[in-house]
Amino acid sequence: MTTLRRIRVELSFLAALWKTNLLAALEYRASFISQVLGMLLNNAAFLAFWLLFFQRFPKVNGWGMRDMLGLYGMTATGFGLGVVLFGNALSLADIISQNGLDPYLSLPRPVLLHVLASGSRISGWGDILTGLLCMALLGPPDAAAWLRYGAAALVSMIVFISFLVLVASLTFWIGSASALSGSAINAILAFATYPMSIFDGSAKLILLTVIPAGFIGALPADFVRHYTGRGLAQLAAAALVFLALALIAFHRGLRHYESGGLATGMGG
């Protein structure tokens, strides 16, 4: 009973944060529109690259433009949802290393949730829009496919944010992981937007574990294309496992921080 009440309280708190973020974004409407358009353009540039690529090489290990559209759309949706709803995940390493957690620690709300949802990247709306456009381009409206798309996007977002939290949590122990965190974001996005089929066995294993790009792009995209019970189970398990790992790492780090401060050194 109390747990249920708590969840309700936290959810309404989250909703309030998101509403504030959205209002703040809309305050500068010209900037909002230009950032969303800019991101659409950014994604269009990558899709244009693939269009050119597949003109010269129609199939790569069985992959074609349609597969690419599905993959790119899925990654864009997961990423977009993540940075709109939990925008501070991108700068979490900096926030931790610059003692930015302190204000949150003095407030009566769950720290991680509060930090993450306190920032929102406007450009993420452009990514979400890209994802929806890709889905629309791929085929006739089919309620079941859209439902699968929604669920898959949720998994994609959870794995993505959890991965960022995991990497940023290293800051608690090594002092500053911001360069590492930047590389990690680059890496996971690069891997999530290329066909899984070009990677061999060991590379695939890495992409489902250490750098879980497979769960952000390829597997959710497969699931949208055709439902399998196994696919659903895989996605659900991935979301739960990475979420749990992120929560454990962050809270252990936080305890470390509260007891002894940050590891120092490693200036610049």
């Binding site: 790569v60 089929s197 070009i198």
Partner: peptide, 10 residues
Amino acid sequence: HLWRATYAGA
């Protein structure tokens, strides 16, 4: 990885 697969495919 990409270009190995691509050249092999071509």
